[in-house]
Design a protein around this nucleic acid. Structure first.
Length: 439
RNA sequence: CGGGGCAUAGCGCAGCCUGGUAGCGCAUCUGCUUUGGGAGCAGAGGGUCGCAGGUUCAAAUCCUGCUGCCCCGACCA
């Protein structure tokens, strides 16, 4: 992408409403724009990151055996009356009426709808297990939205729903998501710790929140330090291996880790002092087993091998991609701007033309740009007529992992400079070497 | 939902107390110079001062109501 043809509205000054670093940097880097309290438009750069995050989420969901679909944002109130949640959910649910005065709502979650879909088609235990997910916009009318994307009202969410014949099998479905989540967050460069959590209005009795430690986190968390060094299961993990997954989950739940609501000070105090982590954290995922909470009232049943009806055991599993974008920034930035992990970076490499209009420099940049594109690299070519300093500042701000600095000084020695955003290290090399390194 | 604050050009702000027809920095546009860490000079454009009433010869400024947004708390899959 040529910057001259892109839409990247960088702000030099920080808008006053932005308090926390991710909010500030997302506005400054031209990633998003607030349209109302807790409601944001994603601008092109922000969308690129969001899509990278979603792609990783999809890959890991698919790998674990979940199947993607897409449910609507608007739901019927009647569906929610079946589960009893229409009255229970409270003002967080945005209720609306259509032109026929029918009561509708903008979905805050999809348990009812997925259960309705499931019961309409699935009749036999032979069609199980089943795990369906979608990535869709949700709306929760928070009393006080804040922290930009971190606590917005409208947000993108991946929610998966598992259906199994009984509790044991549902537990395996839970374990599959548990492992998939570990992998998902690790791929984004995050260390997420699964913590025992409240089940809240979703119901059920088995639940973990996946928490990224960050000083700006909204909740207080307590955990054993060793979690941060645990090895994340590789991509060859066998999701059909019931015992194997259970062993992995057992390991990842063997040490103390809890959010403040579930915190037990006495148990925590028993940890060696140097292993106690008391910190703030950002919830980036939440998984639940809730049994028959919805399948019972909504009559989602299948015929079992014994010929009788069995009420389905369910679980639901959420990840907030839009919140993840903010969480990644909270976890990875410096004074100059964002430092994207390569897996979610909007562009992998930026070419900075340090003397726009200089024939040799322009030619070298164009050649590099074309070559990188031909190799399929996500490359942003800063081809505006700006001073070098301004280009450095922009590139650092938007956090592209690699910068190629092309200027007359270097070219005189047939060299360009490759700068790595994460540690600021630089290296002079021939353009071909840069190409080989970064393509 | 309780408490506090803000609303003036794209962004950040001054002006308001003590009414007299709007200003600064950055950004934008034009020209010249400049080009390895947010350039310099010269010129230009851009604002129903959040909205609606009221007071007054006159309102960004004073009064009343409303709306939007932010912060602290409560709340929060």
């Amino acid at each position: 992408m040529r910057l001259s043809r892109y839409f990247l509205p960088i702000l030099r000054e920080t808008p006053k409403e932005a308090e926390i670093v991710s909010h500030r940097l997302m506005l400054r880097a031209g990633m998003m724009r607030q349209e109302a309290a807790g409601i944001y438009a994603f601008l092109p750069l922000g969308l690129r990151v969001l899509q990278k995050v979603c792609a990783i989420v999809r890959e890991e969901q698919d790998r674990s055996g979940a199947i993607e679909m897409l449910m609507p944002t608007i739901q019927s109130a009647d569906l929610w009356r079946e589960s009893g949640r229409y009255d229970a959910y409270g003002k967080e649910m945005l209720r609306i009426k259509d032109r026929h005065e029918r009561e509708m709502l903008y979905g805050p979650t999809n348990e009812e709808m997925i259960t309705e879909i499931f019961r309409a088609y699935v009749r036999s235990y032979k069609d199980l297990p089943l795990n369906l997910y979608h990535i869709q916009w949700k709306f929760r009318d928070e009393v006080r939205p804040r922290f930009g994307l971190m606590r917005g009202r409208e947000f993108l969410m991946k929610d998966a729903y598992s259906f199994d014949l009984d509790q044991d099998r549902a537990r395996h479905a839970y374990n599959r998501m548990f492992i998939a989540y570990l992998r998902t967050f690790a791929r984004m460069g995050l260390k997420a710790v699964p913590m025992v959590a409240e089940t809240g209005p979703i119901g059920g009795n088995l639940s973990h929140e996946f928490i990224v430690l960050a000083s700006t986190g909204e909740s207080e968390v307590f955990c054993h330090k060793d979690y941060l060094d645990f090895e994340v299961p590789g991509e060859n993990v066998d999701f059909e291996d019931v015992a194997g997954l259970r062993t992995l989950v057992d390991k990842w739940t063997s040490l103390y880790a809890a959010t403040s609501e579930k915190h037990e000070a006495a148990a925590f105090a028993k940890l060696p002092a140097d292993k106690q982590i008391s910190a703030r954290g950002i919830e980036v995922g939440h998984i639940f087993y809730f049994g028959t909470k919805y399948s019972e009232p909504m009559r989602a049943v299948v015929t079992g091998p014994d010929g009788t009806e069995h009420v389905i055991h369910m679980g639901s599993y959420g990840i907030g991609p839009s919140r993840l974008v903010a969480a990644i920034i909270e976890a990875s930035h410096d004074d100059a701007g964002i430092v994207w992990p390569e897996a979610v970076a909007p562009f992998k490499v930026a070419i900075l033309n340090l003397k726009q209009g200089d024939g040799a420099t322009d030619a070298a940049c164009e050649k590099l740009y074309a070559a990188l594109q031909a190799k399929g690299a996500d490359v942003l070519y800063h081809d505006l007529d700006e001073r070098p300093g301004s280009k450095f500042a922009t590139a650092d701000l938007i956090g592209v992992p690699w910068q190629i600095l092309v200027g007359p000084k270097g070219l005189a020695a047939r060299q360009v400079e490759v700068k790595r955003r994460s540690d600021g290290s630089r290296e002079m090399m021939a353009p071909d070497a840069a190409l080989a390194r970064l393509a």
